[in-house]
Write a protein that binds this DNA or RNA. Structure first.
Lengths: 329, 329
DNA sequence: AATGTTTCCGTAACCGGTTACAGGAATTCA
DNA sequence: TGAATTCCTGTAACCGGTTACGGAAACATT
């Protein structure tokens, strides 16, 4: 309750503010004994440094802003994980992070030394505005439009879907459908591309009737599969562009009495925490959100240090679980 | 780019730091002329006060923390709106808000003067921890368990569903179903209660076969309705406990060739921004998220000022649009 | 023994604001 | 016209930290 300041710690430990500060920042040139005694006093008093004063004294705001777009498709979990990753990386560098949801470039500039841009869309004005103001930033996710002009980090969407499809073809599946997020931007397009590459690699024919729009949502996946079933389309596997669509697809299949993976194999994309607990456990492409966050943080740090940084593609990994299995004639 | 400080503004305007500060904080006792000239210089130089220094100088952190629970059902939009409301109310009072997603009471206490608790659930330890540490807080949403011990603000769930059902009974509907969020806590239970009250008020029989679990999601609503249809349950209206379940319900009905509102009337709860644009436009119970936010902010402010505050129920309003209509035999 | 190095730590200035206090100018009052 | 008010604004201390600088010990070197 009573705020304990560095001064009080200093007095209690019988040293000066300066020394406490040095201990606090793990700077060298402090006697090991002194250090540990100060450390003791700090924990004993429950000392927590005031971030405001700290940022003031180091001359720089030492805050990085996370700017999210108002309406974004991805769920809370996605951003939660991403934010944790960013936060841990930045805080170990002495920065704190802050979310700016209302899009306000002036505020962003005033209150942060650099920004991470989330959910950039086609006619997004943030990149150019930030660029004009000279605020360092990196985008997570990318679209062709902005890809050349500013650094981004993204997951390897093409490879991801490609591997999912290859997994299915190796299991003997010949008629593999793709549940796509349609118009929702670059990621969907890249995943479709990965799907095509996978089909072609197995020397199978591309059938546009097997590419269904799932709108990136659970219901979307559910309905798309129902329509396909109603239209009597033939398929033995579905490679979805997101876990949620895969969930919807599985529900729809099961509601029609089909068994996963015996009658139909289904794969997702994301590897949400819920994917492993889903019944059946979902085979999916893990996109390492944490890795994306860490990479983005590092790029931003470099960029703030004045270096030129180039965009990065984070690798992706196929996780095989219970929802996919060998094709049974 | 170059940071402009209060000192520079002062010099440029030919006054002292003190005067600029007074202008900045809209304190009285500054000549009108001086004030406006300072204001001019400020905008001209693009001055933005450093929040860190500010909070340091006013002796208090002047930060209020928003603590969200890790996994929460509500979508991004809900929290976005709520946060905007909180932010605007607090910032006009000189506070800035910060989100703390990783649940960390020590951090909360160290970095904020008060906290808004979002998504409190039954065995949530946050209220008691905060209480023990003496940190002022108010919860948005409430459960019986914590209701007595700490102030909360919530929407009038019971009244909301009650009015939706009354709207439907007045349209002549006799067999009205309810799509509930089931186990998701207090809000669902209260909405069920409102539903029952509405049915009873019209002297209709309560039929538990007409209460369906929609899991608070779109697919949940979709599947529940499909099951009901498959079971040949009779109903001419559905009062859902959330807009999203209503969306799912409508999709399911339309997929079966039913027309809204001619064959079945559907109402939601929330009035999400998308509700008006949905086809058909959704009749729903508007919960004024902004009002909830503002009320919560005011309560927290009072509580921080040392006053005892009592919990509040925010009223709710029925919005009739195209998805509900007269019962046609 | 005198001098040169290191190592450790205290001192004081500073970051960018806020605010109590005091004093000069303008205004009102006797 | 002199005194008492009122208005406005400058001065300086302070918030809680960081850090350049310098000095006192302790140790090594000749």
């Amino acid at each position: 309750m009573a705020k304990v300041t560095i001064q009080e710690v200093a007095r209690a430990a019988g040293v000066s503010k300066g020394t406490v500060s040095r201990v606090l920042n793990a700077r060298e040139g402090v006697n090991t004994e002194t250090r540990s005694s100060v450390l003791d006093v700090m924990t004993q008093l429950g000392y927590v440094p005031d971030p405001g004063a700290r940022n003031l004294a180091r001359r720089g705001k030492h805050v990085i802003g996370l700017s999210l777009d108002g309406d974004d498709r991805r769920g809370n979990t996605y951003y939660g994980i991403l934010r944790d990753a960013l936060e841990s990386r930045f805080s170990s560098e002495g920065y704190s992070t802050r979310i700016f949801s209302g899009y306000n470039p002036a505020m962003l500039e005033a209150e942060s030394d650099g920004v991470i841009l989330l959910g950039v869309h086609l006619d997004d004005s943030r990149p150019s505005q930030l660029e004009a103001r000279g605020v360092p930033f990196v985008m997570v996710g990318h679209s062709l439009e902005h890809a050349e002009r500013a650094p981004w980090v993204d997951v390897d969407n093409i490879l991801g879907l490609f591997e999912a499809v290859r997994h299915l073809t190796k299991l003997g599946h010949k008629r593999i459908a793709h549940l796509t997020g349609a118009s929702t931007g670059q990621a969907s397009r890249q995943r479709i591309e990965g799907y095509r590459k996978g089909i072609l690699e197995a020397k199978l024919p591309i059938n546009n009737l097997l590419v269904w729009d799932g709108e990136f949502t659970e219901v979307g996946g559910y309905r798309a599969v129902r329509r396909a079933l109603a239209a009597k389309l033939e398929f033995s596997a579905i490679a979805a562009a997101s876990d949620e669509m895969a969930y919807g697809a599985i529900m729809a299949l099961e509601d029609e009495g089909l068994r996963i993976p015996w009658d139909v194999s289904v794969t997702g994309f994301d590897d949400l925490p819920s994917a492993a607990n889903f019944k059946p456990a979902l085979s999916t492409v893990r996109q390492d959100i944490t890795a994306v966050g860490i990479r983005a943080a590092e790029m931003l740090l470099e960029s703030m240090a004045g270096k030129k940084v180039s965009s990065a593609l984070v690798p992706v990994k196929l996780i095989v679980r219970a929802s996919s299995g060998a094709h049974t004639t």
